[in-house]
Design a protein around this nucleic acid. Structure first.
Lengths: 396, 396
DNA sequence: GCGATTTGCGGTCAAGCGCAACAAATCTGA
DNA sequence: TCAGATTTGTTGCGCTTGACCGCAAATCGC
């Protein structure tokens, strides 16, 4: 059967999706506000809201006291019982969260692991966690699906993990594993790409239609794009791998690695080395850099030099992206945020110097906003995607 | 008034746009084929087609002999009387064309100029040409609008030409000039971006949803992107300026220019110099390179070396784009096509070596297909855009 | 030339949104 | 405290528009 877009059925589905999407990204909205935002008729909004409530996707609350003239308008909010399960397997731990619409974290669990997790173990842990939640904290919850944020390349077509170097996964059908273990629909994506989506919807990139997101982690530099208001996957879903790029390096003295690959030159490991740490989480690293800079002398100078060097190279990579994509925002996360915050003006100036002037005028450079919840929210978003695209098909 | 998407009116408009868009990009189609492609009902397609005919946007022809059982189905084709005027001001000439839907060139005119054209002169030439066509060749034509392909940065919001170095235009409201001179709605865009759209719809990129297009001209390297099936403009419409990028250059011996800007390293001028020509059009340059390579000896070796050098640097820039965008196709035009065709395998291998393997697997590398009509078709597409987006509003 | 097949055509049906009138809930001001 | 103003929910109706269905037309194969 051909898809029924273009028919009335299609209109209704789109309108439902639009209303649900609005209360998802904008938070609870009064019916009056929904009519204004959608341009639909009052009566239509009432019918659509009623339908969403009936399907258990939204709830209608008493009007907020508004101190304005006129009859108060009931507030439509996402149904808090509806959650998606976000899963992020990493080298040292598997993090899970139950995330409601609107980016609300309803429950969270971190399972530390001594050895690398296998895909099978991730599937089992996910199923166990869901069972535990079902029995206790989230007794009344309805689970819409599971979203996996994997630190590696994920083929969008079938959810195959092509290669996740740090987990040592290669050509693994993780999606099927988790689907079988949980009996829920499973979405899967690259961690940085999902982070970009989260920042776009609920973080530093709210309401921005063209943005570039770069995240620096222990494993390298990943990223994601939003173009024309939509996340960019590319043909196979691999888009956003900025870390593998080779930006120009003006001064040959700035080279540290063979090949000139961005994530080999601009790396967390080199920063740790410069401040003399073996390993540290992000706040610790940032603090250590701050301390080292404050204590002047030879060691301080060496760190300034390394920060500047990494910033120069990062700026070229960012300028390249700005030239090609003309985004209105560049968002930096992880240690790249630390790098930027150490001297925001220097980075901004270096990007402006290397990008074309017109595009440089447009672009803002900011630090990611969501912190540790980012991947959970992004993964949940992927899990919610079918529901948000067509609430009728997914819930009716 | 809020836009009436979501209402029935919106459905009708979208369906009209869909049918017109299909006969535009796919060529004439029988009503039966349209019902299959859109999933709409036969009766609906009949009504929509009738409406398009009534508005003078399409015509219904006698059925093609099909040698198949069943009642023959009338063919819907774009109305040949409907044209857009494409204008491309360049250093040595202004080229104009009347382009019908479907990319058909109905008339063409090249006006050689001795000195740089001013925006005012372009406006006058356009108006004169339209008058001449109206009086003679295109007596029965209806002009939907004018599309300008400008070799420079164009701000999408208001059609202001920010900077067109070779024409020596700076901050010029060309769109208004041409609008006043012709009385027609005018669309305007960067030449390479419009070329990308043309190749996407009617050239080497037909049916491809994620592509990167790079064009090498005398003035440098420009380009355009298509992501998720839609052309990418960026916030202000400057997207696609690959020429200003700084790709990594592995061997310092490969550097020729300060700064390492792509279009300074990979340039038509350097190729001309290598074969000992002052100026030449693209076929002449390609032939000269061929000759020089055939005649071995010292000069042949020097040219091989320069071709290889440029190809290495281009490959890094392409690999960067492939990593970030994961396109299914890279299209090369202008002298970049010449560069590629001289040794396609070398270029392909160099890109594959520097891009991540998974993304490199997906990507095809081809040469542009449309030749000299590319900009005319792209500019006309921009002029037709409002009509194609909403035939009712634009023609009704 | 006749049946099979495909498609156009016209009428009817049904779904869904806009509209308008009315009712309800709140604020303002006397 | 109460009437008027304002905003918005509610309800029933009508309009638009695509789907559906029966019939006619055009073509092919035999």
């Amino acid at each position: 059967m051909p898809d029924r877009t273009g028919s009335f059925d299609g209109v209704h589905r789109r309108n439902l999706a639009r209303v649900l999407g609005l209360v998802h990204v904008e938070g609870p909205l009064s019916r009056a506000r929904l009519t204004a935002l959608t341009g639909l008729n009052r009566s239509t909004i009432a019918a659509l809201a009623g339908e969403l409530v009936e399907f258990g996707l939204a709830e209608e609350r008493a009007p907020d006291p508004t101190n304005r003239v006129g009859r108060p308008s009931p507030v439509i909010a996402p149904d808090p019982r509806l959650v998606a399960v976000a899963v992020n397997p990493e080298v040292d731990a598997v993090t899970l969260a139950a995330v409601g619409l609107g980016g609300r974290i309803a429950a969270r669990r971190r399972i530390d692991v001594d050895e690398l997790v296998t895909p099978g173990r991730v599937a089992r842990l996910t199923a166990e966690t869901i069972s535990a939640w079902r029995a206790d904290e989230l007794r009344h919850a309805r689970f819409a699906g599971v979203g996996l944020a994997v630190p590696g390349l994920v083929r969008a077509a079938d959810g195959l993990v092509r290669f996740a170097p740090h987990l040592e996964w290669r050509e693994v059908p993780v999606r099927s594993f988790v689907e079988e273990a949980t009996g829920l629909p499973v979405a899967i994506g690259n961690d940085a790409s999902l982070g970009a989506i989260a920042e776009h919807l609920f973080g530093a990139g709210r309401g921005v239609d063209d943005l570039v997101y770069l995240n620096g982690g222990a494993s390298g530099i990943g990223g994601g794009l939003v173009v024309n208001g939509r996340p960019v996957g590319g043909t196979s879903g691999y888009a956003g791998e900025f870390g593998q790029n080779r930006p120009g390096i003006a001064a040959s003295a700035d080279r540290r690695a063979e090949g000139g690959v961005l994530e080999d030159e601009v790396s967390r490991a080199r920063l740790l080395e410069a401040v003399g740490l073996r390993s540290a989480d992000e706040p610790t690293l940032a603090a250590a850099i701050g301390d080292a800079l404050a204590a002047d002398g030879e060691r301080g100078a060496a760190i300034v030099e390394e920060l500047d060097r990494q910033r120069r190279i990062l700026a070229t990579a960012l300028a390249n992206a700005v030239n090609v994509l003309n985004p209105s925002l560049v968002i930096l996360g992880g240690f790249l945020a630390t790098l930027a915050e150490q001297d925001p003006e220097a980075l901004r100036a270096a990007v402006a110097a290397q990008a074309m002037p017109a595009a440089a005028e447009d672009v803002g450079l900011v630090v990611a906003a969501l912190g540790e919840d980012r991947l959970m929210i992004g993964a949940a978003e992927a899990a919610f995607a079918p529901l948000l695209a067509d609430p009728l098909a997914a819930a009716g």
